[in-house]
């Protein structure tokens, strides 16, 4: 064979490996993107101690609103403060270790519990519970899921880049959801607004006006 022919053969022989490397790269990045990336992106955090919603909902009269209520001025109280829980838990009521931690490490020294809030949206988002619960007549479950029936608090998966909970983007890394409470990005809120005919007030885009939620 001439040198030129050898070279050409070498090139065409090398073609197979190019394909191989392509496939290797493709598969590796698919695995990285779909499996490894979600695992690395989120850190697993635990709440200060465990809390049993189901146990407590059986003890109160007004369901979720007994502890998660509207204040007189219409603002939403959100996660209850120490004073509310201490109303019953000045002393240890039951036998669990979690309650003991609560009473000894928080009630006695008067420390607020640093709960990790799954539904916390970024600072740029303005959300009014009054507009949705009172005016819209919505149920807590629609956005939060059936937390009231849970017996433990799930692991708080914190996005290492943004610091927010995995619950905002959703458990599914592709952003696919089954229930309304699986995901709560802007498009998810918007989806519901469109479906229920909430007035889309932007003249320019024909969609919801930006300033309604981004003040």
């Amino acid at each position: 064979m001439s040198t030129l022919e050898e070279k050409a053969k070498g090139v065409s022989d090398g073609g197979g490996f190019a394909l191989l490397f392509f496939i290797v790269g493709l598969v590796a990045s698919l695995i990285l993107g779909w499996v490894i990336f979600p695992k690395l992106l989120y850190s697993q955090k635990r709440q200060p101690f465990d809390f049993n919603h189901q146990l407590h909902s059986e003890l109160v009269d007004e369901g979720c609103e007994s502890c998660h209520f509207f204040r007189e001025d219409g603002s939403y109280a959100g996660v209850p403060k120490l004073a509310q829980c201490a109303g019953c838990h000045e002393d240890v009521q039951g036998e669990t270790e979690d309650e003991a931690i609560f009473v000894n490490d928080y009630v006695v020294p008067g420390r607020e519990v640093p709960w990790l809030v799954y539904s916390r949206q970024p600072d740029c988002v303005f959300f009014s519970h009054a507009a949705h619960v009172k005016a819209g007549g919505m149920d807590c479950k629609t956005c939060h899921g059936d937390v009231g029936q849970s017996t433990t608090l799930k692991v708080y998966e914190e996005n290492r880049i943004t610091g927010y909970s995995r619950d905002i983007w959703g458990k599914n890394i592709a952003g696919l959801k089954k229930h309304t409470w699986d995901r709560m990005k802007m498009d998810d809120c918007s989806e519901c607004h469109v479906k229920l005919g909430v007035k889309q007030t932007s003249v320019q885009t024909g969609k919801g006006a930006c300033f309604v939620c981004h003040k």
């Binding site: 496939i23 493709l26 990045s29 698919l30 993107g33």
Partner: peptide, 11 residues
């Protein structure tokens, strides 16, 4: 291949 694959992931 890696680029193509990454584009096919949510990453």
């Amino acid at each position: 291949g890696a680029a193509a694959g990454t584009a096919l992931t949510p990453l």
